[in-house]
């Protein structure tokens, strides 16, 4: 994790006070804090001028927002068509067993969040796992385990 985090006000300042910037603001806050806290959600609503209900609907509709803190490392197993055919499903199951966490959830020690994605656009190397910003191509259960041990 980064040592310093930006102040919420600095993020709000990036966008004019218009409803159309709701999603961009949520994304920036999500990127900075890895989740959207109730306080931040309220501040964003005030800034762009939308009711909390709309922000709530948006934050729960789109998959990239999280209303709970996420883990230090994000493991995203690709379950796009190609990765599915090449055994991506078995990789998620292996992660679920090894990390003792269900997909879409975070380990109790907040070390890992396990998630699935639908195609990261590296299908030629399927199955693909993204570990934070890095791609692991042609992944297998052993190669994935080795990579996770290094973290």
């Amino acid at each position: 994790m980064k040592a310093t985090t930006l102040e919420i006000d600095d993020i709000l300042e990036r966008y004019p006070k218009q409803p159309q910037h709701l999603i961009s603001l949520l994304q920036d806050v999500q990127a900075e804090y890895k989740y959207i806290s109730p306080e931040h959600l309220a501040l964003i609503c005030d800034h762009v001028g939308v009711p909390l209900t709309q922000a709530w609907a948006v934050a729960t509709f789109y998959k990239s927002f999280s209303l709970e803190p996420r883990g230090e490392h994000e493991i995203k197993v690709c379950l796009g068509t190609t990765c599915h055919l090449k055994g991506g499903g078995r990789l998620v199951e292996a992660c679920e067993r090894d990390l003792a966490v269900a997909r879409g959830h975070t380990t109790e020690d907040l070390r890992f969040t396990l998630d699935t994605v639908k195609c990261v656009g590296a299908c030629a190397l399927a199955p693909v796992v993204m570990i934070d910003e890095d791609y692991l191509g042609a992944a297998s259960i052993p190669s994935l385990q080795k990579r996770l041990e290094k973290l």
């Binding site: 709530w56 609907a57 729960t60 509709f61």
Partner: peptide
């Protein structure tokens, strides 16, 4: 007043208020 909305999507779509507390 927009007191209620739909939360989540698809098969999980449900009637919601923010944080599922009375609004």
């Amino acid at each position: 007043v927009q007191a209620l909305t739909f939360g989540s999507r698809g098969v999980n779509k449900q009637l919601d208020t923010p944080y599922r507390v009375p609004n």
